[in-house]
Simulated scan of single mutants.
Amino acid sequence: MTAVRRFLGAATLAAVLLAIVFAVYSFTKSRPQDLPWTPLGLGETPGLFTARKIAALGEDFAQCRALLDHAGVRHIALEPVRPAQSACGYDDGVRSTGGAVALRYAPAGPGMACPVAAGMAMLEWNVIQPAAKRHFGERVRTIEHFGSYNCRRLYGRSEGDWSQHATADAIDLAGFVLTDGTRISIVRDWSGTGEDGAAKAAFLRDVRDGACRLFTTVLSPDYNAAHRDHFHIDTANRGAMGWNACR
Rank of each mutant, 00 (worst) to 15 (best):
D92G: 13
V177R: 11
R183N: 01
A77C: 01
C114T: 14
P115H: 06
F203Y: 11
H230C: 09
L57K: 07
I184T: 00
L57D: 03
A240Y: 02
C151K: 12
Y90E: 08
A132S: 02
F61V: 09
R153G: 02
Y155E: 15
I54D: 04
K133A: 06
D196P: 01
A168P: 05
C151I: 14
N244M: 14
G175R: 00
V81H: 11
R141Y: 10
R95D: 14
T216E: 13
S185N: 01
Y105P: 04
A108M: 11
A236N: 15
R82E: 08
G98C: 11
A225E: 14
G93L: 07
S86D: 13
L173F: 02
W162C: 03
Y25I: 09
V73R: 06
S185E: 02
A113V: 13
P110S: 11
F7G: 08
D206L: 09
E124C: 10
V4S: 03
S148D: 08
V218F: 07
T38F: 04
A245C: 05
V24Y: 10
A225W: 00
M112L: 02
F215S: 10
Y149G: 12
L17F: 02
E124Q: 15
G147T: 03
T50E: 11
E144L: 12
V140N: 04
A56V: 04
S185Q: 04
R157E: 08
A174M: 01
A10T: 08
D169S: 06
T12W: 06
S220G: 07
K53P: 03
G194A: 02
R247G: 15
R31I: 08
T182I: 09
E159K: 05
T235A: 13
A10I: 02
M112I: 01
A168T: 05
L8G: 01
F215C: 12
L57S: 02
A226T: 14
N150A: 13
E79D: 15
D180E: 02
H70S: 07
A201Y: 10
G89V: 10
L204M: 03
T217F: 03
A202D: 04
L35V: 04
W125C: 12
A170Y: 03
V127D: 06
G93M: 13
A84E: 13
A108E: 13
H230I: 13
A106N: 11
P107R: 15
R247Q: 15
R104Q: 15
E44T: 13
L13H: 05
D189E: 05
D206E: 15
P110I: 08
L173T: 01
A19K: 06
D60P: 03
N126W: 00
P107H: 12
V140I: 09
K200T: 11
A10S: 09
F136Y: 11
V81L: 14
T50C: 06
F61H: 03
A113W: 09
A113H: 07
W37G: 15
V187A: 12
A66V: 04
F22H: 12
K200A: 10
R31P: 05
I184A: 06
R188T: 01
E79N: 10
V116F: 00
P80C: 04
F146Y: 06
T38S: 12
N150V: 06
V177P: 00
N126L: 02
